[in-house]
Write a protein that binds this DNA or RNA. Sequence first.
DNA 1: GTTTTCTTGACTAATGTTGACTAATATTAT
DNA 2: ATAATATTAGTCAACATTAGTCAAGAAAAC
Lengths: 155, 155
Amino acid sequence: MENQNISDIIESYLKQILAESQQVEIRRAEIADQFNVVPSQINYVIKTRFTIQDGYVVQSKRGGGGYIRIEKVKLLDNLDFIDSLVAAVGDHITRHDGLAVVRSLFEAGAVNRREVNIILAAIDKDAINTGDRDLDQQIRARVLISILNHLRYES
Amino acid sequence: MENQNISDIIESYLKQILAESQQVEIRRAEIADQFNVVPSQINYVIKTRFTIQDGYVVQSKRGGGGYIRIEKVKLLDNLDFIDSLVAAVGDHITRHDGLAVVRSLFEAGAVNRREVNIILAAIDKDAINTGDRDLDQQIRARVLISILNHLRYES
DNA sequence: GTTTTCTTGACTAATGTTGACTAATATTAT
DNA sequence: ATAATATTAGTCAACATTAGTCAAGAAAAC
């Protein structure tokens, strides 16, 4: 823990607020200043850690009084939950984004911890590794979608 | 013990920490420096001495604040059974034979019906379908083995 | 002597950080 | 109203910082 990078620290800070209050609204320059980073780093943190796969929706506005608002969405409330995850997967998906999808499934209560581990094993880099990165991402997407579609009917 | 090579020494060092603390997190370059070896030797030590068969799970992250984390996991008592299935899968497996492996898992009580369906979805022909039959069988084998390896321990 | 294991380093890949430039929106001046 | 200016956030590419892979050669075991 003594050597966390600054992106992780900013992520933690924002998620801590989100743990209590459903949404957080920031001024980009203010947060950047607070953590002593350039403003665009805030975009990086959001882009890599607050995606729809992670269960967050981000809105922003430029100009005077501008803001970035991060909202935690409750996926279970959404009847098209599986549909939205399938859409999020698309026809290519990285391991990183695949992990986020599985985490969303877990957080939504659609799968338990044991099932999470089985799914992660199925889309692991050691499992899907043809040597062609693009092909791997396609296969990973299909495997994930196949699992998602089965969950639709099983649960 | 009088003729230990450097890999053995690094192994001992890490296992000594693990004897007390469930997991150890290192910076590869730091440990390499400490023992005066090239960084990739750390990968060698981990790959040969901290496998899932030994009861270790390894995670890592690159980039700033990167790390290698080795976690000691509690192995289950079905190891020989899993070994035999891994051997049966080999490096190629058809859907038909894959189904038999999954059925064995179920009949042995290693997985429940829901888990069976998740695994079957993962190795389904629609999920793994590159157009190259041989490649599909290789991928299916790796996906299955990855799942089998995760069934070795409690998580 | 052969085979296996260990050691090394060049190359690759993933992730994080920074800053110059762009775009959108609001405010102020005309 | 319109134009100019100020005030925000977004994008992108270069660079930095980590770990991973692989294959060749050395050392050890057999």
